[in-house]
């Protein structure tokens, strides 16, 4: 009960940990943007696609959002080799997180798509716009505005959720924290420092997103 905190050894590893934060950011950006593109396709398919496609997309979303990402990645990492597909831990994590962000973003974007008013669509068709032009000039701006807040929340969620990569040996921020603490045996100190880095990362993300929302979409978002 007379534990004394010592942060010296952890602070010596700060550059290494911050390097891990960079890896975390890479994972988050990759899976978020890939998931957003696939999610946009999923949302459009779910709203405008033929019935079998809609059902398939719904089933996919329901399955992914009702099971833990951790176990899904276990299947990718440990079960796929049985089928002759060998994934590196990083690849399994990236695929697993992308599967998840695709599912969640499909739902988020779908809610935005159904909020586009039919009158605006009719006007666009009346102006003889092509489908791509309608998407680009009419739907996307409107969707962006309605989904901005849930999208921001999901980005933060993904940033925190990406820490499960550590459990597969990926050396992102949490992974490097595990490495550092297994050498210096200062687990509480190490993870406290890492917690502060996560708080910093998510705060920067929240503020940048709020700023982006205000400038680009005139959305008032609160950071706190």
């Amino acid at each position: 009960m007379n534990y004394t905190f010592q942060f010296g050894e952890v602070m010596a590893e700060l550059p290494y940990l911050l390097g891990g934060a960079l890896v975390t950011l890479q994972i988050v950006f990759f899976t978020f943007f890939l998931g957003a593109v696939l999610g946009l396709m999923g949302a459009l398919g779910k709203v405008y696609g033929p019935t079998p496609l809609r059902k398939a997309i719904s089933a996919y979303v329901i399955f992914i959002t009702n099971t833990p990402a951790l176990v899904q990645i276990f299947v990718l990492y440990y079960a796929l080799p049985d089928a002759g597909i060998l994934l590196s831990s990083m690849a399994a994590v990236l695929i697993g997180l992308t599967l998840n962000s695709t599912a969640y973003l499909t739902e988020i974007i779908r809610a935005g798509v159904v909020s586009v008013r039919q009158a605006e669509m009719d006007a666009a068709i009346g102006l003889n716009m092509t489908r791509l032009q309608i998407l680009r000039y009419v739907m996307l701006p409107h969707i962006a505005k309605t989904i901005f807040a849930p999208l921001s929340n999901f980005f933060i969620w993904l940033m925190l959720g990406s820490s499960i990569a550590a459990l597969f040996g990926v050396e992102e921020l949490t992974g490097r924290a595990i490495n550092v603490s297994s050498v210096n045996l200062r687990t509480i100190e190490t993870f406290s420092v890492v917690a502060v880095i996560y708080i910093g990362l998510t705060l920067i993300a929240s503020m940048s997103l709020a700023l982006l929302g205000r400038v680009a979409f005139r959305v008032k978002a609160r950071v706190f």
Binding site: I156, L160, G161, S162, S163, I164, A166, L167, T174, A177, I178, S181, T187, I188, F191, S192, V194, A195, Y198, I199, T202, L203
Partner: peptide
Amino acid sequence: RRIPFLVIIFIVLYA
């Protein structure tokens, strides 16, 4: 709300 659950588990475990 800004720390990964995994990190919190580690801290609680050792604390």
